[in-house]
């Protein structure tokens, strides 16, 4: 693997952690918005009857997103370790290969063959683990898009329900707005994670 490609992989994996940290914050904001909405809906009583079950949905979506992001964070940490291992093993293999070239004509030049073979196997194993881990992470990132998409639908429903809430219209519309914005932010950040991972060559 060339040095630039390795550098890009390190940057990609590190940037995922940063993006996910932002997603986590936004998911927590949604959770807070859900709590606010619940309080407003409770005060509004009959006028916001249709809004009350929506607040529970919003809360569930926030929880689900937080759990998924936690799992992805753990995976991203593992992926970073695998990136380091792959880098080390590739570097080791390259250096031992260089030993084999430089040792030509040495009395014991053949003895390096076994080390080279084993280093090659370890390098390939690291590459396989790394690529499989990237594929799993991409699946997880796809999964976290689902609650974000659902949140946008809920935000649209919330606006409709808010329109029937009389003097609570503005407060509930603000809740719907905040859920919609948060869902958009999550969508964009996750999309950036996926783009970052596109530098990884997943072909065998």
């Amino acid at each position: 693997m060339n040095r630039d490609k390795t550098k890009s992989q390190f940057v990609a994996v590190a940037s995922i952690a940063a993006e996910l940290s932002a997603v986590m914050e936004v998911a927590k904001e949604i959770s807070l918005a859900a709590a606010n909405a619940k309080a407003i809906a409770f005060r509004a009583g009959e006028k916001a009857k249709g809004f009350q079950p929506i607040t529970d949905f919003i809360n569930e979506l926030a929880k689900e997103t937080i759990e998924l992001v936690r799992a992805i964070n753990e995976h991203a940490l593992l992926l970073y370790q695998l990136t380091v291992n792959e880098y080390r093993m590739t570097d080791t293999y390259t250096k031992i290969e260089l030993v084999a070239t430089k040792a030509q004509g040495a009395a014991y030049e053949d003895s390096i063959e076994q080390s080279l073979l084993e280093a090659g196997q370890r390098m390939n194993e690291c590459r396989r683990s790394f690529k499989s881990s990237v594929t799993q992470l991409l699946d997880q990132l796809e999964e976290v898009m689902h609650p974000a998409r659902a949140a946008r639908v809920i935000a649209a429903n919330s606006r409709i329900e808010a329109s029937q809430a009389g003097e609570y219209l503005q407060s509930l519309q603000a809740v719907a707005e905040s859920v919609d914005n948060a869902a958009q932010v999550i969508h964009d950040n996750v999309q950036r994670c996926r783009s970052a991972l596109s530098v990884v060559d997943l072909t065998e």
């Binding site: 250096k95 031992i96 260089l98 030993v99 070239t101 430089k102 040792a103 040495a106 009395a107 014991y108 030049e109 053949d110 003895s111 390096i112 076994q114 080390s115």
Partner: peptide, 16 residues
């Protein structure tokens, strides 16, 4: 120095 060093060592001893 690893590669030139090990290559030089192989003039005197096998890896194992």
């Amino acid at each position: 120095l690893f590669a030139p060093m090990l290559a030089a060592v192989l003039h005197y001893a096998p890896v194992d």
